[in-house]
């Protein structure tokens, strides 16, 4: 069998690439798919903490590439989801420790055993980005509805095209429906008009992302939160299902703040 390599990238840092990779990995594994997540951000390892697997790392991607460990030894299996495995980045090396040819080899080895190989790209457009995009069968671009993130996404779309990859699809992350309604945040349609690529998902801003990441339990594990459900829908779309795009409630409205306060009075619901 041959799986699909999906690279998750953005250009700008801090827009949610790692959170997206972790949650799509979880959501696909929950649907019974065998998934390997690769942390391609060498020197700034983070996928491990977001997935809650940081205490189990023995070998990393550079150990595999340089022949000190076999791929099987370096892959860490998620105990909550046995179909989900992660290949951690090296923390003490830099991005030049791996080259695009080595990434292609690694990905082709993983494709033989997994349905999906998700590559978490580092920010930027340099060496690490090129490593992450080299093995991609599909590219997913994560952006937030902010000028800097959208501009960088546009640059990345150009570079993905230049790498002769299929047209990337877009995840619009951290959307705040209340601000969009007031005209104070770029709407989904605005971002799509500017970037001219297809949408594969919208993830609303959700405090649950922070609390779940604090615990090392990605939101898609239980799928109860808005963001967790959004990642579940994106996973379904990646599998070719035709899932309608959700319309999100205005979480900034006075009513929803009151509701939030009643659910969690100590949570500082006013903010």
């Amino acid at each position: 069998m041959s799986g699909t390599v999906i690279t998750i990238t953005s250009g700008k840092g801090g827009v949610g690439k790692t959170t997206t990779t972790a949650n799509l990995g979880v959501a696909l594994a929950r649907r019974g798919k065998r998934v390997a997540c690769i942390d391609a951000d060498i020197g700034l390892r983070n996928l491990d903490v977001v997935l809650g697997l940081e205490n189990r790392i023995v070998y990393d991607i550079v150990d595999v590439v340089e022949g000190r460990a076999r791929l099987r030894q370096a892959l860490i299996r998620d105990k909550r989801l046995p179909e989900l495995l992660m290949l951690p980045a090296a923390q003490t090396r830099d991005k030049t420790a791996v080259n695009p040819q080595q990434m292609l080899k690694l990905a082709s080895d993983l494709k033989a055993e997994f349905d999906f190989v998700l590559v978490d790209s580092p920010a930027g457009i340099e060496h690490g980005f090129k490593n992450a995009v080299a093995p991609a069968d599909r590219v997913v671009i994560v952006t937030t509805p902010e000028v800097s993130a959208v501009r960088d996404a546009d640059r990345i779309i150009g570079l993905v095209e230049a790498a002769e990859k299929p047209k990337p699809t877009l995840i619009l992350n951290r959307l705040r429906p209340g601000m969009v309604k007031r005209g104070d945040m770029l709407a989904t349609a605005d971002v799509l008009e500017i970037l001219a690529i297809d949408l594969i998902g919208i993830v609303p801003e959700d405090e649950t992302i922070i609390t779940s990441t604090n615990r090392g339990n990605p939101v898609a594990l239980d799928g109860k939160s808005q963001a967790g459900q959004a990642f579940g829908r994106i996973a379904a779309r990646l599998l070719g299902e035709d899932v309608p795009f959700a319309v999100f409630a205005d979480t900034d409205s006075v009513l929803s703040r009151i509701q939030k306060w009643f659910r969690n009075p100590n949570g500082g619901g006013g903010a």
């Binding site: 000028v147 501009r151 104070d184 709407a187 605005d190 500017i194």
Partner: peptide
């Protein structure tokens, strides 16, 4: 609305 300003600047 600031979103319109953002869109125009981005374009």
């Amino acid at each position: 609305p600031s979103a319109q300003i953002a869109k125009a600047r981005l374009k």
